[in-house]
C-alpha cells in the first residue's frame, strides 16, 4: 500500500502529470498576462500544451560534436529534479508528500539543478550561441542563488525550523511575513525571475544576441522536457513564496488566488522592464539586492537571538 501511495505521489499527484499540466497552465497564464499588458491578444489556453505535444513528436537532432549521452540526459535530469522538488513542497494547499527536517535546503538545490543542466547542455554543444548562453546562465546563477536562499532563510529563522511544512505552519499562525519581512519577499520574487530567466534577467536567452542561448541546439523532445521543467519550477517557486510570505498552506482555493496574484506581479515586472546586460545583472544583484538581503538577514538574526535570550 505504501508503495502505491509513493507511486501516485511520484507519477500523478502532486508530482508527475498533475504538476506538469499545472506548470503549463501557469505558463499560459503568464504569457497571456504579459500579452495583455503589452496590448497583444496572447496565446489560446492550450498553446503551451500544444507546443509540448508537438515538440515531443518531433525528431530530436543531436548536433555533431556534442556528447549524445549528455545531450539527452540533461533535459531528463532537469525535469526529474524539478519533479522531485515538488514532493517536498505542500502543493495546492495540501500537505507535502514527503517531509523531513532540512527539506527546504534540498528543495532549493533541486531547483538550481534546472539552471545547471541548462548550462551543461549549452556547454556540451559547439554552437557559439549556446556557449555564450551557458556562460551567462552560470554567471547569473552565482548572482541570484545566495540572495534567493537568504530570502527563504528569513522565514526559516523566524519559524526556527528548516522544514518547509513547519515554516508554513508558523506562517499560517502569525502575521503574513510579507508585512514583517517585505525585503525578503521582494528578493524572493526577483530571485525567482532570475531563476526562470524571465525578463529583465533573460540575458542567458536574449534572442536578439544569442538566439535561444544555451538551448539553441535543442529542438524536439529535449526542448519539450526543458520547457516542462521550467513550468514545474515556476509553480514550485510561486508556491514557496506564497507559503512563506503569504500566510502558510491555507486551502486549495486561496492557494490558487495567492499564486495567481504573485504571477501577476511577475508578469507586470516582465512587461515593464528592459533586459539587463549580464554585467548589469551581476551589478544589480551584488551591489544592491544581496546587500539588502544581508541587512534583513542580520536584522532577523539579531531579533531571533534577542527573543531566544529573552
Amino acid at each position: 500500500m505504501n508503495n502505491i501511495n509513493g507511486l501516485i505521489a511520484l507519477l500523478l499527484f502532486p508530482s508527475g502529470l498533475f504538476i506538469m499540466a499545472g506548470g503549463l497552465a501557469y505558463q499560459w497564464i503568464d504569457r497571456k498576462l504579459v500579452a495583455q499588458l503589452q496590448n497583444r491578444i496572447g496565446p489560446r489556453w492550450f498553446q503551451p500544451f500544444a507546443d509540448v505535444v508537438k515538440l515531443l513528436v518531433k525528431e530530436e537532432v543531436i548536433p555533431e560534436g556534442a556528447n549524445p549521452w549528455l545531450f539527452q540526459a540533461m533535459p531528463i535530469l532537469a525535469l526529474a529534479s524539478a519533479l522531485t522538488a515538488v514532493l517536498y513542497v505542500p502543493m495546492f494547499g495540501l500537505r507535502a508528500a514527503y517531509s523531513f527536517p532540512g527539506d527546504l535546503i534540498v528543495t532549493v538545490y533541486l531547483m538550481s539543478v534546472l539552471t545547471i543542466s541548462i548550462a551543461l547542455a549549452g556547454t556540451n554543444t559547439l554552437t557559439r550561441f549556446s556557449l555564450v548562453g551557458a556562460t551567462r546562465a552560470l554567471t547569473q546563477l552565482f548572482c541570484y542563488e545566495a540572495p534567493f536562499l537568504l530570502a527563504l532563510l528569513g522565514p526559516a529563522i523566524a519559524a526556527g525550523s528548516w522544514q518547509i511544512g513547519e515554516i508554513a505552519a508558523y506562517a499560517g499562525k502569525n502575521w503574513w511575513m510579507i508585512i514583517t519581512q517585505p525585503v525578503g519577499f521582494f528578493i524572493a520574487m526577483v530571485g525567482l525571475m532570475g531563476k526562470l530567466e524571465l525578463p529583465p534577467f533573460d540575458a542567458p536567452e536574449a534572442e536578439t544576441e544569442i538566439v535561444a542561448g544555451a538551448l539553441t541546439e535543442y529542438s524536439g523532445r529535449g526542448y519539450a522536457l526543458f520547457r516542462l521543467a521550467q513550468g514545474v519550477e515556476l509553480i514550485v517557486g510561486l508556491t514557496l513564496i506564497s507559503l512563506f510570505y503569504l500566510g502558510g498552506i491555507s486551502n486549495p482555493l486561496f492557494f490558487i488566488v495567492k499564486t495567481l496574484c504573485l504571477l501577476f506581479i511577475l508578469a507586470a515586472l516582465q512587461a515593464l522592464l528592459t533586459r539587463l546586460r549580464i554585467d548589469q545583472t551581476v551589478g544589480l544583484w551584488w551591489r544592491f539586492i544581496a546587500v539588502l538581503g544581508l541587512l534583513q538577514f542580520l536584522a532577523i538574526a539579531i531579533f531571533a537571538t534577542w527573543r531566544w535570550i529573552g
Binding site: Q38, L273, T274
Partner: peptide
C-alpha cells in the same frame, strides 16, 4: 530598437 534592447512592451506599443 526597443526589441533589440529587450523592451518588448515599448515595441508592441509603438507598432500599434
Amino acid at each position: 530598437a526597443a526589441h533589440e534592447a529587450g523592451f518588448d512592451t515599448l515595441f508592441m506599443y509603438t507598432w500599434r
